[in-house]
Simulated assay, not measured.
Amino acid sequence: MGPWSALWVMLILLKGQTSNTQPGMISVLQSFREDQFQGEWFVVGLAGSTHRKTDSSLLSPFTATFEKNKNGSLKVSYAMTRGHRCITWSYVLIAAAQPGGFSVDNTAAPGKGPEEVQVHDTDYSVFALMLSRRRSGGQSVLTVSLLYWSPHPSSR
């Protein structure tokens, strides 16, 4: 399945979810190779169960950099521009049993509930489709991100 088709399928699935259901975090990956996933990706598509038309500025591409830590976890750093400002944030992903599955380490953000992240599909060289699920204000928040790899001279 191509990246755009996969994004549309996930958007349709999101639209069909109600706020009381807990969709399963599924993946088409049989294995996940963190070493090939590391590097800078561009988030070129973003959709979610709580996004509104006023969130359209989130559709501007921004970067997501994945780096493996010494302890085996995966650090994700994001950077996006809003007007003349650069906004950055990061978190640590802890591998789960399912290939490409992670839990977000929220120990640095007290009060923030658990969050799961799943690399649903990737070819490691052009695209990745990621899902994120967390609870906020009593409702399930599901987000789908389409990532694009732009090769650099020193890339994989």
Score class of each variant (00 low, 15 high):
S90K: 06
E67W: 00
K75P: 09
V126K: 04
R134H: 14
R33W: 01
D121Q: 12
K70G: 15
R156P: 00
G24I: 03
N71L: 06
V126G: 04
E115M: 13
A128S: 13
I87C: 08
Y78F: 15
G83Y: 08
Q118L: 12
I87D: 15
F42A: 12
L129K: 02
S155R: 00
M1T: 12
P110K: 11
L46T: 10
S155V: 01
S140N: 03
S77V: 06
F127T: 00
M1R: 04
V104I: 04
S5T: 07
G45K: 01
E40R: 04
E116G: 08
S140E: 09
F42D: 12
T54G: 04
P3G: 05
A47F: 07
V28L: 05
T65K: 07
T63L: 06
D123R: 01
Q98F: 03
S103G: 13
F42N: 11
C86I: 13
A64H: 07
G113A: 10
V92L: 14
Q22N: 13
H51N: 10
D35Y: 01
T54A: 10
Y91W: 08
E116F: 05
L131K: 13
V44S: 05
H51Q: 12
L14T: 05
D105L: 06
A109G: 00
S5Q: 09
H152Q: 08
I12F: 10
Q118V: 08
P151E: 06
S60W: 08
L131E: 12
Q22C: 11
A64L: 11
G113I: 04
G2T: 12
L13I: 02
P23N: 08
I87W: 07
W41E: 07
S19C: 05
S155Y: 06
L11C: 12
G111S: 12
G24R: 06
R133H: 07
A96G: 14
H84P: 02
F37C: 03
A97K: 02
W89Q: 12
S150Q: 03
S136Y: 04
G72V: 04
Y78T: 09
V117K: 03
Q22S: 14
G48P: 03
S125E: 09
V144G: 05
S77E: 14
W89P: 02
N71R: 02
D123Y: 02
V144L: 13
L11R: 10
